[in-house]
Nucleic acid binder design. Structure first.
Length: 185
DNA sequence: CGCATTTGACCCGCGC
DNA sequence: GCGCGGGTCAAATGCG
């Protein structure tokens, strides 16, 4: 399953923090559509905003309404049966980017444990839910493939890692993909 | 044997 | 209130 073509930054040491530098929610999404980079087709960030309006906006402007279903999230990992209520509507920042890849397993150097998989409406492909296995690290991510373009994989990160990557980074393609990304900007 | 994945059940928010 | 869609849990299973 290691069919790497010229373009398939199947991995990328993109940590969420690197994306969050100067990304605001009101970013020009049209730009992303127009400029199709090598591997990264688009990405978007979501900050602590009332998600409903924001998402609506996206779905109107975007050419990919499928991504709309990625909206709305919980906050902390306090996921225990019915608790945690007095909080505001603060949503955790989420960062989604689409990648053109044949495989869904985009290894970004962290260790993930799959904890769920659900079918998505209007989508033939299921969505997979992963959680970072590092203790105390509650970073989650979900991977979804578009029906419209099965060559595109949407990865949504939630939270930020507060620990170093624990994988042997000696993968050559890994380094290559980084070079591609930095070159394209 | 320890850890990751699978998979159905459960839970919750929301719209009708 | 109920049904639906989406997110998570957890027991069983698989794998190195």
């Amino acid at each position: 399953m290691e069919n790497f073509q010229g373009f398939s930054p199947n991995s990328s040491t993109l940590s969420a923090s690197s994306l969050s530098l100067n990304m605001t929610n009101s970013l020009g999404y049209a730009e992303f559509q127009g400029s199709k980079a090598n591997g990264l087709l688009g990405l978007m960030a979501e900050m602590e905003v009332p998600a409903s309006l924001n998402v609506h906006n996206i779905s109107q402007n975007k050419n990919f309404p499928e991504i709309n279903s990625l909206a709305g999230t919980e906050t902390e990992t306090e996921v225990k049966l019915g608790k945690k209520k007095g909080d505001k509507k603060i949503r955790k920042p989420r960062y989604a980017f689409q990648t053109r890849s044949q495989v869904d397993i985009l290894d970004d150097g962290y260790r993930w444990r799959k904890y769920g998989q659900k079918a998505v409406k209007n989508n033939k492909f299921p969505r997979s839910y992963y959680r970072c296995t590092h203790q105390g690290c509650n970073v989650k991510k979900q991977v979804q493939r578009l029906t419209r373009d099965e060559g595109i994989v949407v990865t949504t990160y939630e939270g930020m890692h507060s620990h170093p990557i624990q994988k042997s980074n000696d993968n050559f393609e890994h380094i290559l993909s980084q070079m591609q990304i930095y070159t394209s900007f």
